[in-house]
Amino acid sequence: MTPVLETRGLSKRFGGVVAVDGLSLTVGQGEIRGLIGPNGSGKTTTVNLLSGLYRADAGEIVVRGERTERLRPHEIAARGVGRTFQVPKLFGNMTVLENVLVPALAAIDRGTERPLPEVLERAGHLLEFVTLQPLRDALAKELSGGQAMLAQIARAFMVRPLHLLLMDEPFAGVHPTIRAVIIESVLRMNREEGVTALVVSHEMPELRRLCSRVSVMHEGTLIAEGTLDEVANDARVLEAYLGR
């Protein structure tokens, strides 16, 4: 079966800093993969490359068999890639419901829209599920950090069909009850709709509940891959985290 995501030799440099350095990463259909690594190892840059916000200097990105490294962000979204940001990026002056509807409205522009009642029903369900239904008419800029993260997740699930969900540090600075909601919603989308996910995180207990496998990045490349316990005992991983 073709993997949902495959990168080959993916590279990105900022001036003298090589943020991502020949990264080759494969995530299979239906998998929830963790992506860990010390600060500055290139995880966020990778997510930005995958979602098209950065243009790769070299290498390939293949999403469900199709090359995407030259595509613009909205074209990548059209191919079923959704994402969240570490510092939530919502449309502050729109309501929570409006925020969540943007991906569905964008689909009208490319002629792949779904019937309005279906869209509204899904938006309602998702907001219910992430516990934001009571805040649907609040302005997004009035949400707390954790609520904003939940709204981002609901919004990403409105990208249809969603094949690959990219999450950058979804648990950073988020209250434990909200962490549980985040985990539950990703697991559920994975189970019910077969959504594949790549989750950048440092939080081991949360990753343990979400993923069977994690990939470890260091200085822009992959240094280990396996179950959390396997990588936790990997000599190179220990060295990367503890410093040379």
Binding site: H74, F91, A106, D109
Partner: peptide, 14 residues
């Protein structure tokens, strides 16, 4: 206007 990057990754041809 609120967030061009977020609009783009949500599918809007900004």
């Amino acid at each position: 206007r609120d967030d061009e990057e977020a609009a783009a990754v949500m599918g809007v041809d900004t």
